[in-house]
Computed example of a mutant assay.
Amino acid sequence: MDITTTVAMNLVFLTTLGIGFALFCCHLILVASALVLVGVGRLAFIALDRLVRSFV
């Protein structure tokens, strides 16, 4: 195996790992932001529910 073939194979492998890690980070950020949105929505619902109940 030539040195150029080894370098090319290593570049392909490391690029694949890098893309996989980037996609993993994107999914992690998406899941975390979804959980934050769910929490904010729940908090808003509780606040509006208490506000409506105080007037009724």
Rank of each mutant, 00 (worst) to 15 (best):
M1D: 13
M1Q: 07
M1C: 11
M1V: 03
M1R: 07
D2G: 04
D2F: 01
I3N: 06
I3Y: 01
T4N: 06
T4E: 09
T5P: 01
T5G: 12
T5C: 10
T5E: 05
T6M: 14
T6N: 12
V7P: 01
V7C: 09
A8K: 02
M9N: 14
M9Y: 08
N10G: 14
N10I: 10
N10Q: 14
L11G: 06
L11P: 03
V12G: 07
F13E: 14
F13R: 15
L14A: 06
L14G: 08
L14V: 02
T15Q: 13
T15I: 11
T15C: 15
L17V: 07
L17K: 10
G18I: 04
G18L: 09
I19K: 12
I19S: 06
I19P: 03
F21M: 11
A22C: 07
A22V: 09
L23H: 07
L23R: 02
L23V: 01
L23D: 00
F24Q: 03
F24K: 13
C25D: 13
C26E: 11
C26Y: 15
C26V: 10
H27S: 15
H27F: 15
H27P: 11
L28W: 08
V31H: 08
A32F: 03
A32E: 04
A32G: 06
S33L: 14
S33P: 00
A34N: 10
A34G: 03
L35S: 08
V36G: 00
V36I: 12
V36D: 01
L37I: 10
L37G: 08
V38A: 06
V38E: 03
V38M: 04
G39D: 00
G39R: 00
G39F: 00
V40A: 00
V40F: 00
V40W: 00
V40I: 03
G41I: 12
L43P: 02
L43H: 08
L43W: 05
L43K: 12
F45C: 14
F45K: 11
I46S: 02
A47Q: 02
L48G: 05
L48S: 04
L48V: 12
L48A: 13
D49L: 10
R50C: 09
R50M: 04
R50G: 04
L51D: 10
L51N: 09
V52L: 07
V52P: 05
R53D: 10
R53N: 08
S54Q: 15
S54R: 05
S54E: 04
S54P: 00
S54N: 15
